[in-house]
Each structure stands twice: as structure tokens, then as C-alpha cells.
Design a protein around this nucleic acid. Structure first.
Lengths: 181, 181
DNA sequence: TTGCTCCTCACGTCACGTGAGGTGGC
DNA sequence: TTGCTCCTCACGTCACGTGAGGTGGC
């Protein structure tokens, strides 16, 4: 039976010694045994397990999830993989949004004053196009005001709406029903 | 001058009290002052700064980078934004690769035994199509062997290459020049 | 007095990296 | 003896969250 020291096994996968020490500490990859001097040694069984761990790591699973997948074959593991798949989808959207924001910031720096990309008119048109009516729009304002009043304010100002009108909209939003009364 | 307590300001942006405590501790957003009783209070200046911080946070900057961007207007900030833009591109590639891996794992579970997606022949053809000749191929094996011998082994086996041939390839890779001698 | 907000530590999270101080093996 | 690897703490990272234990303000 071939034996590998901790650093040799790590280097084979481009992992550091401290990574394997950590995997041992959390019980994810305990070595097959110790030499009389207390050195960890790993065998081909461990090498195969590390290979699997590495696969799942590349798929972005947490070490806790990897442990769960490896210990229980079958159904639960597919649940975990699906969960991770959903996370990646969300993360992609996040990244795309970040790229949009960064692009705007960079073009803003490069071009000096950038034209207001979206104003009140365009915003409302977009929401209407998405099927929102007056009621839905009001409900949305109310929700925005309730959850993040300052951001709501900032947002309305960013659409080029004058301060006075902004305050009116916010007052309506904070007291739903007041507008129709 | 309007004054906001820590929780009120936080809630306005959907941030927790402890987040603002943290921003104070690291010096990113110190409050304008304290009440006689020691309570932090924030003003509109702070509110505007938090608005900026939030923008950059949504763009994925680290708090350290946000601090740098806010304290030095102009050139250095665009460097930081470009750096972040590059990071997002890499992160996208990572995520796409993760999705590929997850899809393969999930289909593997669903369908039982999955056919070996890529074998030696296809692999070599792809590399040749990319313009690699024998020399380049050998150099690549050598590099793979040097940096991650076990993964190299695993990879060759995954292409359906028999153990004996794998060992030969790895021996050549470890001793470049031996093959031509 | 009750119930709310505020305060300051201090420790936990995640997946390791980085020393410090000491030992085994050729 | 030299130079390498190994060992075990213990603390640092990042952006907070979560109590514990205590106080201010209506």
C-alpha cells in the first residue's frame, strides 16, 4: 500500500499543506493513519476521496455540503447539487448587475457628465409595459417607502423628479389610501 | 440639521445596526457626532456618504476599496473600478464552469452511467485544432505532471487510457527529452 | 414601571494562510 | 551537523451576526 505524506498529497492537487490540515480538523479528510513519529500518512483511498472533494469544490459546494454528499449517496446529494445550481444562477444575475453598474460608473468618469439614463417618464412607461396599473404602482411605492425610505427618496430624485414632488409621492406612499380620499 | 439614529439610518437602506457599527469601527462611515448620552447621530452628510457606499457595494467593491474610491476622487478610483470589472469577468467564467460541472453531475445521477464525454482521441483532436503540435503537447504534459501529478494521472485515466500507457506518458512527462532520445 | 433604543465587549462564521516554537529523518 | 519535512497551537482574514450585560428616554 502506497503512502503519501501530507505535502506530497496536497501538491498533487495543487492544494497547500494547511488546506489538508484543515480538512483533517473538520473531519472531511482524515488521514488513514500516523507514523510512529506522529506524521500523518495518506493512502490511495484518501487520494480518491480527495479527488472527489476536489470535483465538488470546483462545482462551488461548501465543504459542509461536500461532506454531506460524500457520506450519503443518492437522493440528498442531488438535492444539494440542485441547490448549488440555483445559487449559481442567482450569482450570475448579481454579477451581470455589477457589470452594468461598473460600466455606468466608468463611462460616467470618462465622459464627464453622463445623461440621466432613465427618467420618470421612461421608468413609468417601462412599468406600464410590464402590466402595472396605478394601484400596483402605488403599492410598489408604499413597499419601497416602508422598506427603505431614504433609498426611495434617492431613487425618485435620481429620476429627475423635483424635491417637492418627491416629498408628495413619499407622503402618499407612507399613508396608502390618503391619495384616493 | 436633521439627525438620524443608527438604526433609523440603517433601516433606510436595508442595512442592519451592526453593519453601521462595523462601518464606524473601520472608519468607513463615522457618525457626525454623539449625543450627551453617547448615542451616535448621523446627519445628511453621512446619509449621502452611505448612499455612495451602497452604490459601490452593489458593484461588488470591497469596503477597503470603497474607502479608497471615496477619499481620492478621479484616477485611482477608475483603476479600482476597472480591476473590479476584470474580477467580475473571471467570476462569470468560474460560475459557468461550475454550472457545466453541476449539469454533468446531475445528469450522471439521473441517467445512471453516463458515457465518457471526451476520450483521448477527441481531446488530442481538439488540442491539434487549437494549433498544438507534438512539442507543445509534450510541454503541456510536463507542466501538468510538474504542477499536479495526481490530477494528471486521474485526468489521463478519465480519457479512457489504460493504466500502463498512463504510466508511460507520465514517465515521459517527468523526464522531458527522454522520449526523443 | 414598561418597552423601546442605545451602548460596549467578545465570540462565531468560512476556508483557509501565516507565523512561532519545536521535533523527526536522511 | 545541515536542511528538509513534519508537528501543534494560536491568531489573522472579510463583512458582518449574535448574544451578554448594562444604560438612556419617553
Amino acid at each position: 500500500m502506497k503512502r503519501y505524506s501530507i505535502s506530497v498529497l496536497g501538491r498533487a492537487w495543487g492544494l497547500s499543506r494547511s488546506t489538508l490540515l484543515y480538512y483533517d480538523r473538520i473531519g472531511l479528510l482524515p488521514p488513514s493513519g500516523r507514523t510512529p513519529a506522529g506524521y500523518r500518512f495518506y493512502t490511495d483511498r484518501d487520494r480518491k476521496r480527495l479527488s472527489q472533494i476536489d470535483q465538488f469544490r470546483q462545482a462551488g459546494l461548501t465543504l459542509r455540503d461536500i461532506g454531506a454528499v460524500l457520506s450519503s449517496r443518492g437522493k440528498p446529494s442531488s438535492e444539494i447539487l440542485k441547490k448549488r445550481m440555483a445559487e449559481t444562477a442567482r450569482a450570475m444575475l448579481d454579477l451581470k448587475n455589477q457589470q452594468r453598474l461598473l460600466a455606468r460608473m466608468l463611462s460616467g468618469i470618462g465622459a464627464g457628465g453622463c445623461p440621466p439614463s432613465v427618467d420618470k417618464k421612461m421608468w413609468v412607461e417601462m412599468l406600464r409595459a410590464a402590466g402595472m396599473d396605478d394601484r400596483a404602482l402605488n403599492a410598489w411605492h408604499a413597499e419601497f417607502e416602508r422598506r427603505a425610505p431614504a433609498a426611495h427618496h434617492e431613487f425618485l430624485v435620481s429620476l429627475g423628479i423635483p424635491e417637492a414632488e418627491v416629498n408628495q409621492i413619499r407622503a402618499w406612499s407612507a399613508q396608502p389610501g390618503l391619495r384616493s380620499g
